[in-house]
Design a protein around this nucleic acid. Structure first.
Lengths: 139, 139
DNA sequence: TCTAAATGCAACTAGAATTGTTACATTATG
DNA sequence: CATAATGTAACAATTCTAGTTGCATTTAGA
């Protein structure tokens, strides 16, 4: 795929927020840790804010905070917020006269559903609190 | 088009091969069912040939055949052959001075490993024979 | 009240990936 | 020997991602 790293960046950004809980973090600070542009962070955290995962405060001394405790934010929440497409893409146009082609959409959708049904619970098992624990253990 | 459809096209192409077992199928015939260009099919089936999933025969009346019975070819085999990258991408450059950034690569790799460990067995459960069964049932 | 610092957002660019296409060398059938 | 097929290179069109700039808006604090 055009290998998008939104999920990785989102998890990283949220880990920063879960780590620095004293005050809001600015997109500039987070961008420094991720090594990207502050606007990229604002775009991603904007999606997460719309999903209710983070909250933004405007003005000086503003920035982003987690909207709820880190233990209540799972990677499934992050995935759902930032990754709109599924794992695989289907083709929209096929040869309608071919009996095989006619069944492919349904067959592949079933496969993708079964895969997602395995992936989402796995993502749900990891929370931001787990990630902070990992960082604290090593640091 | 970041979401690549190689997996979907590969499964479709293999379903055609599993359906027409009498003689080799040409890339042109398969492309007609998938509604794409024959070269696209040859590229994909080339990967699958290198993985030992299909066999190509040259010359007139040539084309592609499955290298083993459809029941012995799982979607995991297809996935492994055509999808080189994982589900998510990591960032290669981070801020080495940030303790959070330093742990992210390891943390995300763990997450991705756990996800793959759920996905691959699920893909393994479906074979081309299952897909042919589905098509036969409806057709 | 004013300044500094922050988000939100629009617009644009650069680069890469995907897909489609043409062309041609090679190979095998009959 | 003609036909039909794969393998592969080269290129174009489209789309996505990420980065960047600029600016309106908002807020904290001196």
């Amino acid at each position: 795929m055009a290998a998008n790293s939104r999920f990785a960046v989102a998890v990283h950004a949220l880990a920063v927020l879960a780590w620095h809980t004293q005050a809001p973090c600015s997109s500039r600070e987070i961008a420094a840790s991720v090594a990207t542009n502050a606007v990229v962070i604002r775009r991603l955290l904007g999606q997460l804010a719309r999903a209710g995962v983070v909250e933004a405060s405007y003005g000086a001394r503003g920035g982003f905070r987690l909207a709820r405790p880190a233990a209540k934010i799972s990677l499934r929440d992050v995935y759902a917020a930032v990754e709109e497409g599924g794992f695989f893409a289907l083709r929209e146009t096929l040869n309608d006269k071919c009996p095989i082609a006619c069944r492919m959409k349904s067959i592949l959708n079933d496969v993708f559903s079964r895969v997602e049904a395995k992936v989402l619970p796995e993502l749900k098992r990891t929370t931001l609190a787990d990630i902070v624990d990992d960082i604290e253990t090593v640091a």
